[in-house]
């Protein structure tokens, strides 16, 4: 009888390799901006593009690399709503609650997402598939209420569309 092979080992190795590759990319980003002034926000944009969020380790590397105090890097990372210092779900669903969307029922849409995902706003689902956030206007007010999932945008979202939107990203799970 052959030993049961679960394949975990391979997966762990792959994850480690992925992680290492991300740090190589980070080093390239830092090199690109080194020695220039006013580049912190653009560098963090790119770093988050690689990691999906800004782990402490990444903030430290950016601070060292760009010769900016860590406190300032952290200050910037926490000031802007684009940057995340806690891990995110694979997809971020944002329901717009800007005034134009609000008057067209954005709040009810948000509540529906909360119900369907069983998580509160600013929370992440247990399986880390989704993070639920709000937007304060994405400049598509003519199509209110607006929901974005990553780069995808859904307009005029009605309550019964909510499960459909979620299903698109779970592959029917």
């Amino acid at each position: 009888m052959s030993a049961h092979q679960c394949g975990c080992e391979g997966q762990v190795k792959q994850a480690q390799a992925d992680e290492a590759e991300k740090y190589v990319k980070l080093a390239q980003i830092i090199d690109e901006y080194k020695g220039q002034r006013g580049v912190l926000i653009q560098a963090l944009h790119k770093a988050q593009g690689v990691f999906g969020w800004l782990p402490e380790e990444v903030q430290i590397k950016v601070a060292d690399g760009l010769d900016i105090p860590l406190a300032e890097v952290h200050g910037v990372a926490t000031f802007y709503s684009f940057f995340h210092i806690i891990p995110r779900g694979e997809h971020t669903i944002r329901v717009c609650l800007g005034t134009a969307c609000y008057v067209r029922g954005g709040k009810q849409v948000l509540e529906q997402f909360e119900k369907e995902l069983k998580t509160k706003v600013r929370g992440t689902t247990e399986d880390r598939t989704f993070s639920l956030e709000i937007n304060r206007c994405v400049g598509a007010c003519g199509l209110a209420p607006v929901v974005t999932v990553g780069a995808d945008i859904y307009r005029r979202v009605k309550l019964d569309k909510v499960p459909e939107i979620i299903a698109k990203y779970t592959g029917g799970k």
């Binding site: 006013g38 900016i68 709503s81 684009f82 304060r136």
Partner: peptide, 18 residues
């Protein structure tokens, strides 16, 4: 990077300076 106040001119300049 997602901050409405950065539309205010002096805040925008702060932001441009990183």
């Amino acid at each position: 990077a997602g901050a409405y106040v950065c539309g205010e001119e002096t805040a925008l300049i702060e932001s441009l300076e990183g």
